[in-house]
Simulated scan of single mutants.
Amino acid sequence: MILFFGTKTGKKQTKTLNTVSCPYCAQKGTLMTVSQSNYVHLFWIPIFKLKTSKFAECSHCKRGFYEEEFTPGMEKGLNR
């Protein structure tokens, strides 16, 4: 019997943080966050989630922020 087992990325979810200002250029409403989950699959059906990656980018200064660099305001705006 052949089992198709592996990992697969889920769909990207984007969210604009309108009330949060960029920590680098201080422009308000320019941050956009992207979160994407990785799943373990069996026969291309997701079984369980391994991890979720989060990233933010300012559309004004083009500065990127990894999840470890998120400010408390960014975390609060992301969880709304």
Score class of each variant (00 low, 15 high):
66 Y>K: 14
60 H>D: 12
30 T>W: 00
44 W>K: 09
68 E>F: 07
46 P>G: 08
49 K>H: 04
52 T>N: 03
51 K>N: 15
47 I>D: 03
40 V>M: 10
63 R>Q: 10
38 N>S: 15
44 W>Q: 09
66 Y>I: 08
34 V>Y: 02
40 V>I: 14
62 K>H: 05
55 F>M: 12
59 S>I: 04
47 I>L: 14
59 S>M: 11
29 G>Y: 03
47 I>F: 05
65 F>C: 00
48 F>I: 06
27 Q>T: 13
68 E>Y: 07
44 W>F: 14
60 H>K: 13
49 K>V: 02
28 K>M: 08
64 G>F: 04
28 K>Q: 15
58 C>Q: 06
68 E>M: 11
54 K>G: 08
55 F>E: 07
33 T>A: 15
52 T>H: 02
36 Q>P: 01
64 G>P: 01
25 C>E: 01
58 C>R: 09
44 W>A: 10
42 L>P: 02
67 E>W: 01
28 K>W: 01
62 K>G: 00
67 E>C: 05
49 K>E: 12
45 I>C: 07
25 C>N: 11
30 T>M: 08
41 H>P: 02
29 G>E: 07
68 E>W: 05
50 L>A: 05
63 R>D: 00
53 S>P: 01
41 H>R: 04
38 N>K: 15
49 K>L: 09
63 R>A: 02
34 V>D: 08
49 K>Y: 01
36 Q>Y: 03
29 G>I: 05
36 Q>K: 13
54 K>A: 14
56 A>N: 02
42 L>G: 06
44 W>E: 09
40 V>N: 07
63 R>N: 01
53 S>L: 10
39 Y>W: 15
36 Q>R: 14
26 A>R: 06
35 S>A: 10
48 F>K: 06
24 Y>P: 02
65 F>S: 00
56 A>C: 13
26 A>Y: 05
24 Y>V: 13
66 Y>S: 14
44 W>D: 11
58 C>Y: 08
40 V>C: 09
46 P>D: 05
44 W>M: 12
55 F>R: 11
59 S>P: 02
43 F>R: 05
39 Y>N: 07
62 K>L: 04
37 S>A: 15
27 Q>I: 03
47 I>S: 08
43 F>W: 14
48 F>N: 07
57 E>K: 13
31 L>E: 10
46 P>K: 03
51 K>W: 14
32 M>W: 00
58 C>L: 11
68 E>V: 12
45 I>P: 03
42 L>S: 09
48 F>P: 05
56 A>F: 03
33 T>K: 06
29 G>S: 05
38 N>Y: 12
67 E>R: 04
61 C>P: 00
49 K>P: 03
